[in-house]
Design a protein around this nucleic acid. Sequence first.
DNA 1: TGTGACGCAAAAGTAGTACTTTTAATTCCT
DNA 2: AGGAATTAAAAGTACTACTTTTGCGTCACA
Lengths: 233, 233
Amino acid sequence: MTTPAQGLHSHVLATLGLAITAGEYPPGTVLRTDELAQRFDVSRTVIREVVRVLESMHLVESRRRVGVTVLPTVSWNVYDPQVIRWRLAGADRPRQLRSLTVLRSAVEPVAAGLAALNATPEQCRELTEQALGMVATSRGRRLEEYLVHDVAFHRVVLNASGNEMFARLGDVVAEVLAGRTHHHVMFEDPDPAAVTLHVQVAEAVRERDAARAEELTRQIAVGALQELDVLAP
Amino acid sequence: MTTPAQGLHSHVLATLGLAITAGEYPPGTVLRTDELAQRFDVSRTVIREVVRVLESMHLVESRRRVGVTVLPTVSWNVYDPQVIRWRLAGADRPRQLRSLTVLRSAVEPVAAGLAALNATPEQCRELTEQALGMVATSRGRRLEEYLVHDVAFHRVVLNASGNEMFARLGDVVAEVLAGRTHHHVMFEDPDPAAVTLHVQVAEAVRERDAARAEELTRQIAVGALQELDVLAP
DNA sequence: TGTGACGCAAAAGTAGTACTTTTAATTCCT
DNA sequence: AGGAATTAAAAGTACTACTTTTGCGTCACA
């Protein structure tokens, strides 16, 4: 019971990556390729390819005559979507959610400001549509539907910013929002104030009011951070 | 003339990664593993491992009966330090520097604010020291020395924020600052106003004044963005 | 003429083996 | 005790044989 596994490589990679990010192998732990090959009942070829990938994520380091050493958390490529997914699925999920939310609180306001300057008419339309979708699904325990609109909304903002680094955080935001909805709460309807703020952000972007878009998004971020403080000390 | 190359794998990876990120193979280009093996004069084993790594960076996608397809820029893992380095060494270096500087302008102020709350006495000391180092080397064409202090300063701020996502941007900031110093200018001494701001940030952090640290860092960021606008349209 | 089933072949995926290279650790000599 | 030579363990590389998936062309049928 690890992962679907279409292909030996994916399966072994998912299993090992998850185990390492979950802290099952403390930093400094040494693995040997042929031991792993035996354990997973695959050829050393497969293991080597997996190790190379883990190495590129800086989860492990492979040295001759030593083996494959698990690296400490600080050296991990924490922006790798794969690593993020593994960590969100593992033990330090709360810590991870917090880090990512703080990151969001820094990035999204600036992205919203830029979006107000750069959004295409199509993106403005899409933004408004998603905001309205949020309003429509914000009452009556329709959390799953609400989540879809919420994610789409933030994705559009990040894309419309015109900055590729911001755009690539769309997946991260999606994970965070999904995590928030699925993990705790699930009963409570979303905060009406937050919903309103989203509508206003869409407005501000449509009206090319960068300062307002940024400030409103900052308020959304503050809300997300507070929510986090309420749920976890 | 590609890269030092200690190990076939590193060499091929560096060559291919650089070529792809430089746009030498337009998206959609299909490579075949044994053709690559022949071209680089290495075994298919090595090529496969390289392809797996490139695949984990979402630079390429490998499919049976098709080959290794180069993916469009939007799907690349643009936060991967390796990818960042390749892109900074290649053709779209200016575009890349701009993206990263915008990212900095979003992240660093928030990081500085958090640093003011979380910095250890040791980190405060280090911060002050680096700021003073910047002052000391800010006049008389001592740009290389100045750069060292500048990088160290920003690294400490990011680390002191206590957020691992921020901390991991230390390398990115280092690349951006180095790029700035090395690429253009090189004659001009650093802007005295910026130097003063750094000293003041160190002060603010030492005094636990989060709002001030954030605001001052925002001013540094604004300066960096303006500098970019002056140098590249 | 269009459409769907069928089968071929190309390319990646996997396995296994043999060999090379690096290097930590041990031994041995001074 | 300290340093040089030796050893062996583990990753790195190569090659070869085989399996599996799958895009594409062919052909039959409606």
